[in-house]
C-alpha cells in the first residue's frame, strides 16, 4: 500500500487519433498527461475540436490510444479491450453523456434501465436489485412512480438525473461527465449541478467534468485542466488558475467569460 500513489487515474504521454481517409492519421491528442486523485473533481475545459470527447473515449476504452499509458489504481489498462476493461475495473469507470435523450433506450422503462447494470453484474438477488433501483431513483430526486415510465415521458433534466442514477448505481470510483448540463435550461442546469455536488459528498467518487462553460467548472471542480489542440496547456487548482492564468489561451477564455 505504501508505494501506491494517491492517484485514481493517471494518463501518461497519451497520443490518440482517428485514422483519416487521405492522410494516415489525424492526431487529436498529443503527449497528454493527466492525473485524477481519489475524490477529486477535475474540470476539463476546451473549445470544440480540442479533443475533450476523445479524451473521454480514451479513458473509457471506446478508443485505443496510439501510444501512452493509462493507469487506474496503478494498474495499466490501456491494452485491454472495452469489455475486458469494464470487467477488470469492476465497472469503476462510468460515464454521463451530453444528450440525455439518447442515453436511454426509448422502448424500455426507466426502472428497467436502472436495474439493468445490476442484472448484468449478477451480484445481487432480484429483490435487492429492485430495492436498490428505487433507492437510486430517490437519490437522484425522482419520485418512485418514474420507475415504470418511458424516457419520452420525462423532461431533459429528469432524464439527465435518471442517467446519473444509472451510472452511479454501480458505485463507480470515477464518473466521467461529458458536458452533462450544456443542453439543459438554466434552472435545470442548476438542479443537476446541485445533484452532482450532493452525490459527490454522499458517494465519494472522483469526477472528470468536461465542459466548455467556465462558470460551471469553477462552481463544481477542485482542479481544472485546460485543453487546447490536443494537449493540456494549463493545469492546477481552480482558484489559482482563475486568479492567475499563465497560458495565453486560458487568459483569453477567462477574459471572455468576464471572470
Amino acid at each position: 500500500m505504501s508505494e501506491r500513489t494517491n492517484n485514481l487515474l493517471e494518463l501518461r504521454n497519451i497520443y490518440a487519433g482517428y485514422s483519416g481517409s487521405i492522410r494516415k492519421m489525424n492526431h487529436v491528442l498529443q503527449d497528454l498527461s493527466l492525473s485524477i486523485k481519489n475524490n477529486e473533481c477535475v474540470g476539463l475545459i476546451g473549445e470544440s475540436g480540442s479533443g475533450k470527447t476523445t479524451l473521454a473515449n480514451i479513458i473509457t476504452g471506446f478508443l485505443q490510444p496510439i501510444s501512452g499509458q493509462i493507469l487506474f489504481q496503478d494498474n495499466s489498462i490501456e491494452k485491454l479491450a472495452l469489455k475486458k476493461r469494464a470487467k477488470q475495473l469492476s465497472y469503476n469507470i462510468q460515464m454521463v453523456f451530453q444528450d440525455p435523450y439518447s442515453s436511454f433506450n426509448p422502448r424500455k422503462t426507466i426502472g428497467y434501465q436502472l436495474m439493468e447494470p445490476l442484472v448484468i453484474q449478477k451480484r445481487f438477488a432480484e429483490e435487492e436489485i429492485e430495492a436498490k433501483a428505487y433507492e437510486s431513483l430517490e437519490q437522484v430526486g425522482l419520485a418512485p412512480d418514474y420507475f415504470l415510465r418511458y424516457p419520452h415521458q420525462l423532461s431533459g433534466g429528469q432524464l439527465q438525473r435518471a442517467a446519473l442514477g444509472c451510472s452511479l448505481i454501480m458505485t463507480p470510483r470515477l464518473l466521467i461527465a461529458d458536458e452533462p448540463v450544456s443542453s439543459l435550461d438554466v434552472s435545470v442546469q442548476a438542479q443537476v449541478l446541485d445533484l452532482i455536488q450532493d452525490l459527490r459528498e454522499k458517494l465519494e467518487f472522483s469526477c472528470l467534468f468536461i465542459s466548455h462553460d467556465l462558470a460551471v467548472i469553477y462552481h463544481l471542480c477542485d482542479t481544472v485542466a485546460v485543453l487546447d489542440q490536443g494537449s493540456i496547456v494549463e493545469y492546477g487548482p481552480v482558484e489559482k488558475v482563475f486568479e492567475n492564468p499563465q497560458n495565453d489561451y486560458t487568459k483569453q477564455l477567462i477574459f471572455s467569460m468576464g471572470y
Binding site: 469489455k83 465497472y91 460515464m95 453523456f97 439518447s102 436511454f104 434501465q113 448484468i120
Partner: peptide
C-alpha cells in the same frame, strides 16, 4: 450510435444482450 449503447458497453453488457 446512441449513448445508451455506449452506456451499456461500459457496464460490460454482452454484445448479444
Amino acid at each position: 450510435q446512441r449513448n445508451f449503447v455506449k452506456r451499456l458497453q461500459l457496464l460490460g453488457a454482452s454484445s448479444n444482450r
